[in-house]
Amino acid sequence: MMSALRHLPLSTIGLFVFACLIMPAGGLVYADDSPQIALSRMSHSFRELDYHGTFSFQRGSSTESFRIAHSVIDGEEFERLEYLDGEKREIVRRGHHLNCIHPGHKLLRFYQQQQAQLGSSANAGVGSFYEFAVNGTGRVAGREVVNLQIIPKDTHRFEHHLSLDKETGLLLRTELIGPGKTVLERFQFVEITIGEPLAGEQFVDAGASYQAYHTEPSVTANVAGNTVGDGWTVQWMPTGFTSTVANVKFVTGDIATFTDGLTVFSVFLESDVDLNLVQRGLEGRAQKGATTAYTRLLVLADRPHRITVVGEIPAQTAQQIAQSVRLVSSR
């Protein structure tokens, strides 16, 4: 099914999905060129299309170049990202099934937004936390683009400026804008080829590869249902964020990741903190481009724990999130 669909133009798929969902829903319609539709297309295109090209990534005063390749082979994604500057290294990911839909993608996709409009109890999707505006058209990497401006409704997220390929919906340029209209980081394709699949051999490790880890979006047995043992929770976070791992009452590992569809942050908890190191820092903050890392020690159950929040969120939000981590015991 998927492999057949992927050869259709994406707009056809979009319309097909549109048609399927709109009928029972009762006539709530976005215009075909609306930001919501554009975002929904974006969330499909970067996974479902074949493309390769080079892009630059800019943050602060530094610029780096990358080569990216993405192919869908037998319904599975094959991806490679090469760092073109400095030490030779690359990231390879193979065999990510197209049917494997993560919570973040769902939030961007059209039906979720529509469910929200209809007052469903499902997470409302990005439409509730950002304002959208189409900001004209332009040209990026030699292709025509539609510019989208996505402005958060609260101060816990950054503003996004996206340029999406008119024909395919692929993201060709993105800027994250911080307070005071500062550009925190910028991705921009320099050149891109769309629709020419590469063979599987192109995605073999080159000896300097990192195989990216894949987290299952839903967890089977032994986590949610497991009532033995302890875990932890994040008691406060901005509205609209959901766990990237579904159906979990509390976290049992050392990491929990949350997404609102566009913005993602992760919380790490360490319980065995070396007190000698503790003395060097109870609290610390790091900032690189749009990425904030905030670390602090909290005494939980009479023992020092180190909590670190990493994400593309403002520092103060990271701080608030970190302070709300609590242990839970189900015994």
């Binding site: 975002l39 961007l108 997404t259």
Partner: peptide
């Protein structure tokens, strides 16, 4: 985890 959940992927 972010690349799987931010709608932008590998970049």
């Amino acid at each position: 985890r972010a690349v799987l959940n931010n709608g932008q992927g590998m970049i």
